[in-house]
Computed example of a mutant assay.
Amino acid sequence: MLIIQFLIFVVSLFVVVKSADYFTESAERIGIALGLSPFIVGAIILSIGTSLPELVTSIAAVLQKHSEIVVADVVGSNTTNILLVLGASLLFSKSEILKHNAAIVDLPILIFSAFFVYFAFLGGSFGVIEGIFSLAALFIYVLYAINSKKIEIEEESKKISLKDPIILILSLIFLDLGSKYTIKSVIEISKGLSIATDVIAATVIAFGTSLPELIVSITAARKGKLEIAIGNVIGSNIFNALGVLGFSSLVGVLKVDRSTSVYGFAFMIASSIILGFVVQNRKLSKWVGAIFILLYLFFIYKMFI
């Protein structure tokens, strides 16, 4: 029954999001205990950790021969991260002036990743060669991030406990299980409602897998740490475009559906460019956040009509 599949979807997606949350927290504690700098723990582990739902659901989709869900989820998540996550963060933000100039390296890489995904799929598929190139580009960005000082997260030194590695392993197991049932339920729901799976992936799944970014970013913005929120969104989007698609392509060739190629790519590229213009002067306001959210609602509307 459709109701049962919907309940399975809600529960499994909740498991994915919460598992990613526990994984991020335990990995953060382990990283600090091992002597990693707060920046590396926050900028690298935080952004990659909050993108784990996209990664695990994408790999599960490829293994189940529904690679169109991967592309739709990445495109939808990146658009959601900028328009909804960052938009909501700006509405809750206590700080409007950015200290770090993200326009020098971070935003160009973000915009490059958006265009790279678009051009890579002009031929209709995304294979191993494209995947290796994207992973290499991601590796270069991570090296840059590790050697920069663009984000600082205040954190007291912690001691590693036995429960942290256990939580880390268990969260990965539940991530795998939750992702498999999320994809299966989405396929059944889309069939029952006669809605294309890529539309569901670009909207419903994208929103669900972006919840970690949304929670982390709003929390940071309310504490007056808007740069953490922006860094999380930019880092997550770069990891989605280069890492999620890159790793998924190693499992199987990725295909793209019509709605994603027509509307999804356009919104992802446009939102990335708009973010570049907005962040360039380092001054952000609640009005910008409101406009972002309105654009997100327009994105949802276009994906469903």
Rank of each mutant, 00 (worst) to 15 (best):
F139E: 04
S194V: 12
S185R: 08
L83A: 05
I153E: 13
S77H: 02
E154D: 15
L170W: 04
G131W: 06
V85G: 10
K158C: 07
T79F: 02
V117G: 00
N78D: 09
E152C: 04
D73I: 07
K191S: 14
L90W: 07
E96H: 14
S77D: 02
I97F: 11
K158Q: 12
L143E: 09
V142H: 05
F119C: 08
F115N: 08
Y118I: 01
T80I: 00
G131L: 07
E156C: 04
S179W: 05
V142E: 05
I111K: 03
I82Y: 00
F121L: 13
F112I: 09
A137T: 12
S89A: 14
F119M: 11
A114E: 01
T79Y: 02
A145H: 08
L90F: 14
N81T: 02
V71H: 06
G127F: 12
L107C: 09
L170Q: 04
Y141M: 01
L172E: 01
A137W: 07
Y141F: 14
I169N: 00
S134M: 12
E154H: 15
A102I: 10
T182V: 12
L98N: 07
A145L: 15
I166G: 03
I166A: 11
D106V: 10
I173F: 14
F133K: 11
L177G: 02
I169Y: 02
S157Q: 13
S125E: 15
D106I: 07
T79M: 05
S185H: 07
K163M: 10
V186K: 05
I104S: 13
I169W: 01
S113Y: 06
K149G: 04
E154S: 14
S171C: 06
T80L: 00
V117F: 04
K184A: 14
A72E: 05
L122M: 14
L98K: 09
T80K: 00
A88F: 15
N81H: 03
A120N: 08
K180W: 09
D106M: 08
L122C: 10
A136H: 07
I195N: 03
A120R: 07
G127I: 11
V117M: 13
L138E: 05
I111P: 01
I151H: 08
N78L: 04
G178A: 10
A103R: 09
I69D: 04
S185Q: 05
V128I: 15
V70C: 05
F126D: 09
Y144I: 12
L168R: 00
